[in-house]
């Protein structure tokens, strides 16, 4: 099986700042990949490079096709959908109209009637069916996050990039959101999720990629990654990492003695 998304030596610089530093990554169809790292690690920038908002260097292959030189609307039409860290609804439209937009424009030759049916279906899937005629701006934050998911689902994506869909939600709302993401993955959509909440990452992801200062410092199964000294150092600083290592060594020594 060939990867659905393959990044090779992707770099993005802003003036003197290297926001994404030589990242190579391949994602297989059906995977749920967690993208984690401290604030400013370049996670969102990487999503912006994949979706064509920024044009970096390196190659990006999606579904056997080079996409690094394409525009955002072209990439999204191919089947790469995303949600934003800060929700981006069309505020004056109803929830239904919001979801109709991707249903209309993501594929050629979709009539507004068909788009309306697809949109209603996507809203039902995320549990917003009862609120389809409400204005997007009058939904709760949790509702608007689900609206973002419905919008990206209406594009019928092959790959879905979720940028902190759980930020700002309370624990009960997070459980609902995690369940929803799991159901989306079960439909066969490949998911790359940026997330700060370790509970969510450990629960959902089949694989975790850690970014630090724009570079990939670790990659692997959730358990392996969280015990990786480089990851602990990136998150908690090297003094803590050294102390943790000493403690581990002492414990090991104590066991021997």
């Amino acid at each position: 099986m060939s990867p659905i998304l393959e990044l090779t030596n992707v770099t993005q610089r802003f003036g003197g700042l290297t926001a994404v530093d030589d990242v190579t990554l391949s994602v297989m169809p059906g995977e749920v990949v967690g993208l984690i790292g401290p604030n400013g690690a370049g996670k969102t920038t990487l999503v912006n490079v994949i979706t064509g908002v920024y044009r970096g260097t390196g190659t990006i292959v999606f579904d056997g096709q080079r996409i690094e030189a394409l525009k955002p609307y072209q990439i999204s039409r191919l089947g790469v959908a995303r949600t934003y860290q800060v929700v981006q609804p069309f505020p004056e439209m109803t929830a239904l109209e919001n979801v109709m937009a991707p249903a209309t424009f993501a594929h050629a030759g979709v009539s507004l009637t068909t788009a309306r049916e697809k949109a209603a279906e996507a809203l039902d899937f995320v549990g917003l069916g009862a609120e389809k005629d409400k204005r997007a701006s009058s939904l709760t934050l949790a509702g608007r996050k689900r609206l973002e998911l419905a919008k990206s689902l209406a594009m019928e994506p092959k790959v879905l990039l979720l940028d902190e869909v759980n930020a700002g939600l309370n624990p009960a709302e997070i459980d609902v959101a995690v369940d929803l993401i799991r159901r989306i993955a079960a439909r066969g959509v490949t998911i790359i999720i940026i997330e700060h909440l370790m509970k969510v990452v450990m629960n959902l992801c089949t694989r975790i990629v850690v970014l630090h200062h724009g570079a990939k410092i670790a990659e692997g199964a959730p358990d392996t990654v969280t015990s990786d000294p480089a990851v602990i150092e990136a998150y908690l600083g090297n003094r803590y990492a050294k102390r943790a290592a000493e403690r581990a060594a002492a414990a090991a020594g104590g066991a021997h003695g």
């Binding site: 999204s76 069309f90 505020p91 937009a101 209309t104 424009f105 993501a106 507004l112």
Partner: peptide, 24 residues
């Protein structure tokens, strides 16, 4: 027409409009 719908999306949020597949 879909042109008008697309323009409405652009007015309200151009970045999101291009992300839902509109050739802005």
């Amino acid at each position: 027409h879909r042109l008008g719908f697309g323009l409405m999306c652009i007015r309200q949020n151009e970045d999101a409009a291009s992300m839902v597949g509109i050739n802005t």
